[in-house]
């Protein structure tokens, strides 16, 4: 059965209906890229998946457990769904390792020595072990984003959401972050990425979802989707970004 199962998801901000019924099933280990114009609802959709936004209608299941509403406490939720933001959002007053250890220590009540070990493991995975005692202000954007990925991974989530994680980076720093995501994908991590990196979506993802006006307009495997778009909207979108 699907790891993530979204049914008839609706979300409005005031009078503006941003999500008009999203249905999506994602298998464990799948890498799904969500693409679309700004305002198509893709970030809102992603943020509903870990309840940073509460949707108005519909259900979200993780494995066979209901995730939305009050079904899961924030603590439980954070151990199931991790998120990486466009603007990193590292805690500026904490060192790299403290950033990564915070949630395991505070939310999971992991013993300090063990939390440290977990932190070192995930920081090694993103290639940031050497900067373990640096403060975020001392790091480049790409390095900060890799730490943010490690911070999310430290909670051992089943799904990792990535909300335009390379959009705030200088072009020369995009590569190092994508490389980390690619290695996560290879390890079998379930990834849902909202992205403007079409090349990455095409090369790394298993499935691409094109959102348009609050709906999933078209989806499929990246090769077919990018080379033979079925709808004029997607064709137009691809032409405008490639």
């Amino acid at each position: 059965m699907a790891l993530v199962s979204v049914k008839d998801l609706h979300k409005s901000f005031g009078d503006l209906e941003v999500l008009k019924g999203i249905d999506l099933e994602i298998e464990s280990g799948e890498v799904v890229a969500v693409i679309g114009r700004s305002g198509s609802g893709k970030s809102t959709f992603l943020r509903c998946l870990n309840q940073l936004e509460q949707h108005d209608w519909g259900t979200i299941h993780l494995a066979d457990q209901r995730l939305d509403g009050t079904a899961m406490s924030p603590g439980e939720l954070s151990q199931n769904v991790g998120i990486v933001f466009q603007s990193f959002n590292l805690f500026p007053h904490k060192t790299v390792v403290e950033n990564v250890m915070l949630a395991p220590l505070v939310v999971k009540q992991t013993p300090r020595a063990e939390a440290r070990k977990i932190a070192e493991e995930v920081l090694d995975k993103v290639g940031m072990l050497e900067k373990i005692d640096a403060y975020p202000a001392q790091l480049s954007g790409g390095q900060q984003q890799r730490v943010a990925i490690a911070r999310a991974l430290a909670m051992d989530p089943k799904v990792l959401l990535c909300d335009e994680v390379t959009s705030a980076l200088d072009p020369e720093l995009v590569g190092e972050v994508l490389l980390v995501l690619e290695s996560l994908a290879k390890e079998g991590m379930t990834l849902i990425l909202v992205t403007h990196e079409m090349k990455f979506a095409r090369d790394v993802s298993h499935r691409v979802v094109f959102m348009h006006q609050g709906r999933i307009h078209e989806s499929g495997d990246p090769q077919t989707l990018f080379t033979q778009p079925k709808t004029p909207e997607l064709a137009q979108f691809i032409a405008s970004v490639l």
Binding site: S78, A103, V107, A152
Partner: peptide
């Protein structure tokens, strides 16, 4: 910054 609150919430902090 709003992002700080969101990051904390997403990590499960009360």
């Amino acid at each position: 910054a709003r992002g700080q609150h969101e990051a904390a919430r997403a990590l499960g902090l009360s």
